[in-house]
Amino acid sequence: MAAKNPKPHGLLAQFDTASAIYSACEKIRDDGFKYWDAFTPFPVHGLDKAMGLKRSMLPWIVLVMGLTGASGGMLLQWWVSVKAYPLVISGKPLFSWQAYVPITFELGVLFGALGAVFGMFHLCRIPQHYSPLFKSERFESVTDDKFFIAIEAEDPKFHPEETAQYLESLGATHVEMVEQ
């Protein structure tokens, strides 16, 4: 439909080594681009800093979830043993909390782990099976051995030709326009 005048998603630049993309990211960060991202086959050490990303807030999600799991676990055991089904076993008090520690701990771990995985999904906005970048055939090697930087057309500093030249000057081995 938009074959004649396709709206650009952005420019996709290929880099061949981890060190090349690292220094390119530092440059783009310092030049004040906003809507851009780096794509790598594995987490490149220190790239978060080179891109100027803020710390992930995932640990807080996990902390809240873990505490919810643990306190919910203790509450469940208290409610069952004291309220719903009070049975005296081996002459122990109904709320013998020491015996409830293992399950409290296990439920804390379970909720924490669920929080870590699904919290990560949420922060990454995955599953998201569509991305304009998937239209690029070259981009398939991002999960193999190539590194990419995409600067989106939305970025205030974006210019189709100038930004392409800029990316090439940073050491990109190939730059292409990706349509939306």
Partner: peptide
């Protein structure tokens, strides 16, 4: 899940991985 190696994803992914390791150990 539409993974494309985005570093904005790796950032959270690595934290999640570390936390899962930390939870699995105890």
């Amino acid at each position: 899940l539409g993974w494309r190696g985005s570093n904005r994803h790796w950032q959270h992914y690595e934290v999640a991985y570390m936390i899962l390791a930390g939870l699995s150990t105890p």
